[in-house]
Amino acid sequence: MEGKVILSSSDGQVFEVDMKVAMISQTLSNMLKDTEDTGSETAPIKLANVSSRIFNLIIEYGKYHVEAQKSDTSEPTADLKKRVRELVADDKDTLFQLMIAANFLHIQSLLDLSYQIVAEDIAACKDQQMIRQKYNIENDYSPEEEEEVLKLHNIFE
């Protein structure tokens, strides 16, 4: 499929996106196929839950993704993951929003990469205290419970 597709974000901004880039979203791809069948006019598709800020990132990612598919990078996934990390610039909120948007647009590769990034960040934490700090999670164990849990799960010295 060639050409452009017009999309609008939740805050009303209109984007003209390369068809190839839009097609990485399973949701959009299905929708555009329907459009082709019916031959209806192209009008902006409204993405009610994706802000323009996040949508910009998704378009950026889409371009990388299309590029990566064309080129013979030895480690396309590692490369793309680096790109996603650059896009979210270590901001958790951005990453989670990107994740939600990727989920709803059905961009599996972006979803996997963002899960991977969160998991890596958690694994990079030295201990549970550091994870709590990083993600602002309240420790809801009572001291006794915590001791119990520590005893049960702290199997690696």
């Binding site: 958690i122 934490c125 994870i131 709590r132 809801d140």
Partner: peptide
């Protein structure tokens, strides 16, 4: 599901 084996243990201790 993408956590490493050891990080599953420390993550269990984060919260209930």
């Amino acid at each position: 599901g993408k956590l490493t084996f050891q990080s599953i243990w420390s993550s269990r201790m984060v919260c209930k």
